[in-house]
Write a protein that binds this DNA or RNA. Sequence first.
DNA 1: AGCGGTCGTCAACATAGATTGACGCGCAAG
DNA 2: CTTGCGCGTCAATCTATGTTGACGACCGCT
Lengths: 245, 245
Amino acid sequence: MTSDKKSCLVEKLSHYIELDELAESQLASLEEHERTYHRHQEVYSETDELKYLYVVKRGWFYSYTDMPDGRRQIIRVLHPGDIVGFPDIAFEYATSNIRAAEDGCLCPFPKQKLDAIFEKSPRLTALLFLMANRELACVIDTLRAMGRMDARERLAYFFLDLTARLRITNKDMTDTIRMPMNQHEIGDALGLTHTYVSKTIREMENAGLISRKGATLTLAQETRLEDMVDFSDRYSRLDTSWFPS
Amino acid sequence: MTSDKKSCLVEKLSHYIELDELAESQLASLEEHERTYHRHQEVYSETDELKYLYVVKRGWFYSYTDMPDGRRQIIRVLHPGDIVGFPDIAFEYATSNIRAAEDGCLCPFPKQKLDAIFEKSPRLTALLFLMANRELACVIDTLRAMGRMDARERLAYFFLDLTARLRITNKDMTDTIRMPMNQHEIGDALGLTHTYVSKTIREMENAGLISRKGATLTLAQETRLEDMVDFSDRYSRLDTSWFPS
DNA sequence: AGCGGTCGTCAACATAGATTGACGCGCAAG
DNA sequence: CTTGCGCGTCAATCTATGTTGACGACCGCT
């Protein structure tokens, strides 16, 4: 590792199971190399030949897809400690684009590195399998939001999800987060236009549900927001009871 | 196995890699038990305590989530040979509901059965990992459709996806499929009302894009439909080049 | 200090899709 | 043979969100 700080990935995963030395060293080997990106820089694009996955080390990133006519859908926001590229791993060419939401740093590692884990650490294998499927559950939550919620509910869901995710590695976090994405990006994540995002956020603010100050966002009435969207936290607890020992 | 026919799961997976005897027997052990369901019967519900996954043996099923006020989102249609429950595996309680779209049969197996695979078959492990992530990629495609496509495009995407999936195990399939879901269910899968589904399908039929006869559906102009939605087949080919040997 | 870009906001207008209610066909149950 | 229900369809009306265009605040650069 090139950083003195404990790996974000190890920190995030050890929230769920105890990692032995072999597991920790295997995970550390995923972060041997690193590369910095500046705000809005592309990491990779749809149809790139893709042999790598990435670990987020610093900064927010997001994955998205474009349509030929310019319509864009942001799929998922990625935070430090997240693994980037699971949806693309099954294919020779990437299915989505990755971009830096702000200045940050990624650690690329070849798909093949997973082999060593699959062969030697059944327990870590199970955890990676779980992380991929947890991501699936989260994308499904987003799908539910896009299919059946109105604009206000989608925004509530989006903010709640981000907050729940950030709390895993920030135990002492309150109901306030830094929000480095602009309203155009938020709209692309929720299937709305930036004008309507602006209008709806403003209404939510007037209703006392949230408040803003510069680039920070506060969930003033988190419980009410949760009730609005029937929110489930997919991050704080996972079922690892069936793991091999 | 209680059936004389080769397992659907083995058939589907061996489309991607060669399965050795150990792998085949491990997969077969997932289908030791079976249970039949009649059309519209629930398999499991959100908040059920869930220790099982399922292999679809016969018939179409689908997963969905409900909102407290009755809005419903169908997440994914499940065909013979598919594994049911990946998005729920990470949690103690189910995150979605499963229901039979028509009369069919499922094989339940406990999550723990994956342990034996993780411990003894790195190659099969990699394949299961791939299948879960392929499903992620497919849900992301659906998300893109829901976020950024209009009604006609969503329907085109939905029909193309189903057709591509069914072709894996039916090599000689043409552009015609049996469609056992009604328009209300199709609407719930695409975030539309059944009235609007009716109207839009009718328009597509008039435009010569598709045609219907009873419960069968034909993609009369498959290429044009693919161009409309920038369609990618996620089923015919996967990248297994990085698998352990 | 001036300047061009990004970003949020607002208002006027346009429209895709929802809602509601009605009708008819086919089919299974009595 | 009737009855009732699931299902597809159609039309009238309503509404949430998109579209376009404009303006002002802020911020880094010259």
